[in-house]
C-alpha cells in the first residue's frame, strides 16, 4: 500500500491521524478510528477522523465505555461487521444519534493482538447500499488486516517501555529468504534454492516484513541490512 509508513515517521498523534485519512482515501471508507488499551498503563489511547462534533458527543457521554464495537470486537480474532450488533441495545444507544452527525452505523472493526497481550482495534465506516458495502469489505479486508497491525505496532512502539521489548526477532529461514532477495533472486528461485515451495517463501517474507515493521519487501531488505541481519551483495 502506498500509504504513510509509520515505521519511518515520528510516532506522534498527527501521523496516526494522517494514516487514518490516507487509509480511508485509499481503500474507500468515509471514516476510520483506532483504539487501544495500553497493557502498561491501562490508559485508553484512540485516534479517529470522525467529524469533531461526533467525537465531542462520543467523548462527553463516555460512549467508549459501553460501545460494543470496542468491547465485543476485542474478543474476536476476525473482523467484526457492525451488522452483528444490530440487536444490541448498547450499540443502538451509542449509534442512535449518529445519523444526526452524518455517521452511519455501517462499519467494520478489525481486532489486532500484539505479543504482550496488547489489543488494538481499527474501525472503518462507509455510507452506501448494503451490497456495495459487502463488495467494498471483500476487496479491502486483506489490506485492512495489514494496516491494522501496522498502526497498532506503531502506536505500541510509541510507548517507551514497549519499545525496549520490541526488537525484531527473525527466524533463520526469514533471514535466509531476505538474504536471497538481497541477492536479486525471485521468490520462485528462492523456493528452488532452499527446497521449499514459493508459497512457503511468501509466508516467510510476509512474516519478516511485519516483524521489521515494513510495508514492502524492498524496504524490509533495507532495514534488515541496517540491522545487520542481512549482508548487502
Amino acid at each position: 500500500m502506498d500509504i504513510i509508513d509509520l515505521s519511518v515517521v515520528a510516532s506522534d498523534d498527527a501521523n496516526f491521524l494522517e494514516y487514518l485519512d490516507q487509509l480511508c482515501a485509499r481503500l474507500g471508507f468515509d471514516f476510520a478510528s483506532y483504539a487501544t488499551t495500553s497493557p502498561m498503563t491501562g490508559a485508553v489511547q484512540g485516534y479517529a477522523n470522525y467529524p469533531d462534533s461526533w467525537k465531542m458527543h462520543y467523548m462527553r457521554r463516555n460512549l467508549h465505555r459501553v460501545d460494543p464495537t470496542i468491547h465485543k470486537s476485542a474478543l474476536s480474532i476476525a473482523p467484526v461487521d457492525w451488522a452483528r450488533f444490530e440487536r444490541d441495545e448498547r450499540f443502538r444507544a451509542v449509534f442512535f444519534a449518529a445519523e444526526d452527525f452524518g455517521i452511519t452505523p455501517q462499519g467494520l472493526t478489525v481486532p489486532v493482538r500484539g505479543p504482550y497481550g496488547d489489543r488494538g482495534l481499527l474501525s472503518v465506516t462507509r455510507r452506501c447500499p448494503r451490497s456495495d458495502w459487502d463488495k467494498l469489505k471483500r476487496a479491502a479486508i486483506g489490506d485492512l488486516q495489514v494496516a491494522a497491525v501496522h498502526l497498532h505496532d506503531a502506536v505500541m512502539r510509541s510507548d517507551v517501555i514497549s519499545r525496549a521489548l520490541r526488537q525484531p526477532r527473525l527466524s533463520t529461514r526469514e533471514i535466509e529468504v531476505l538474504q536471497w532477495v538481497a541477492a536479486g533472486k525471485s521468490q520462485m528461485d528462492i523456493g528452488d534454492i532452499l527446497g521449499i515451495s514459493h508459497r512457503t517463501v511468501e509466508v516467510h517474507l510476509r512474516s519478516a516484513r511485519e516483524k521489521l515493521g515494513t510495508l514492502s519487501t524492498v524496504q524490509a531488505v533495507g532495514r534488515a541490512i541496517g540491522l545487520g541481519l542481512v549482508y548487502p551483495r
Binding site: 489486532v112 505479543p115 495489514v146 497491525v149 527466524s171 526469514e174 512474516s207
Partner: peptide, 10 residues
C-alpha cells in the same frame, strides 16, 4: 527459532 508473525496468517 522465533515464530512467524503476520496479520494475514492464523
Amino acid at each position: 527459532e522465533p515464530p512467524l508473525r503476520s496479520a494475514t496468517c492464523w
